[in-house]
């Protein structure tokens, strides 16, 4: 069953006085519990596509369905509520809040977004910190740990709300080769263990091979879809 469905999606925005067609008539379906990659060079529309699926942006034309809900017409508040309930995010630059410890960063969506009681929060935070192997680093601030550890904490933060979907925009771009593979492996493991749908973007050919489904993008269009047997 499709968790994500895009029908005839265009996205145009202005860069100065120039009109940029970031996405052109995109048709896309992503199945539930899949491990999917959007691949393409810079400017191909990967991030724009992730932003639309993540309810961070709205299409100029067409429809976006996430978990069978049309998300095009959400207000800012509705979009925030939907993201908080259904979607986890992993960013290229980790984006942990610098004033919070690793533990508090993972806890953040539970108290700021989902209003989970303190006792339940602790159980869930510890469960995911343990899952990403960051229990011993939980009291450190993001500036005190490595990039790889930052991204592990970010994975835990993305998963702690038990979202149906995790979107990761170039999650390995700021990591060395070894850590990049460790993060992808961690994401795959979480996908297997929790059944969460993962979609990530990358332009690294070695990382791409780790995905089960690959959508290749070029100039704002999906040029083909590959299903890899060595993926998930």
């Amino acid at each position: 069953m499709s968790l994500i469905e895009l029908k005839g999606v265009d996205k145009t925005y202005l860069m100065g006085e120039t009109k940029v067609h970031a996405l052109k008539n995109v048709q896309l379906e992503v199945d539930e519990q899949s491990f999917t990659a959007f691949v393409g060079p810079s400017g191909s529309g990967k991030t724009t596509l992730l932003n639309l699926i993540g309810c961070l942006d709205k299409p100029s034309n067409g429809s976006v369905f996430v978990n069978r809900v049309k998300v095009n017409d959400f207000s800012n508040k509705e979009a925030a509520l939907f993201r908080g309930k259904n979607i986890g995010f992993i960013f290229q630059t980790f984006n942990l809040l610098p004033v919070l410890t690793v533990y508090e960063n993972v806890e953040y969506p539970l108290f700021m977004v989902q209003n989970v009681p303190e006792k339940k929060r602790d159980e869930r935070v510890m469960k995911y910190l343990d899952a990403v192997g960051m229990t011993d680093q939980k009291d450190k601030y993001p500036s005190e740990i490595s990039g790889g550890q930052n991204q592990r904490a970010a994975v835990a933060r993305a998963l702690v709300t038990d979202p149906k979907l995790v979107l990761a925009d170039e999650p390995t771009a700021n990591l060395d080769h070894e850590n990049a593979f460790k993060i992808i492996e961690l994401m795959k493991q979480m996908q297997r263990d929790l059944g969460t749908t993962f979609i990530f973007s990358t332009h690294d050919p070695k990382i791409v091979k780790e995905a089960k489904i690959i959508f290749n993008l070029e100039d704002g269009k999906i040029i083909n879809k590959e299903i890899l047997s060595n993926g998930n």
């Binding site: 925030a80 993201r83 995010f89 960013f91 610098p98 989902q114």
Partner: peptide, 16 residues
């Protein structure tokens, strides 16, 4: 600005 973007992306309501 980026932190605000991150908080917003994670689902923090504008009012919060």
């Amino acid at each position: 600005v980026r932190e605000i973007g991150t908080m917003s992306a994670i689902g923090t309501l504008p009012s919060k």
